[in-house]
Amino acid sequence: MLIVVLAVALLTAVIPFAAHRARQALYPQKYEDCVRMYAQEYGIDEKYIYAIIRTESGFDPKAESDAGARGLMQITRETFEWIKTKIAPDEQIGFDSLYDPETNIRFGSYFLSFCLERYDGDLSTAAAAYHSGVSKVNELLKQSEYSSDGRTLHTFPYSQMSNYVRKVQKNYEQYCALYS
Rank of each mutant, 00 (worst) to 15 (best):
D45E: 13
D45R: 09
D45W: 10
D45F: 10
E46I: 07
E46M: 14
E46Q: 15
K47C: 09
K47W: 11
Y48K: 14
Y48A: 15
Y48C: 11
Y48Q: 14
Y48P: 01
I49A: 09
Y50R: 03
Y50A: 09
Y50N: 07
Y50C: 07
A51L: 06
I52D: 00
I52Y: 00
I52F: 00
I52Q: 01
I53N: 03
R54Y: 05
T55N: 12
E56S: 10
E56D: 12
E56Q: 13
E56Y: 10
E56C: 10
S57P: 08
S57N: 06
S57D: 04
G58N: 10
G58E: 08
F59M: 07
D60P: 04
D60L: 09
P61E: 14
P61I: 10
K62S: 14
K62W: 12
K62I: 10
A63S: 14
A63Y: 05
E64V: 14
E64Y: 00
E64I: 13
S65T: 08
D66W: 00
D66M: 01
D66P: 04
D66F: 01
D66C: 00
A67K: 15
G68V: 12
G68P: 06
G68K: 11
G68A: 12
G68Y: 12
R70A: 03
R70F: 02
R70G: 01
G71K: 03
G71E: 02
G71C: 05
L72R: 07
L72H: 12
L72A: 13
L72T: 09
M73P: 02
M73W: 06
M73I: 03
M73T: 12
M73R: 05
Q74A: 05
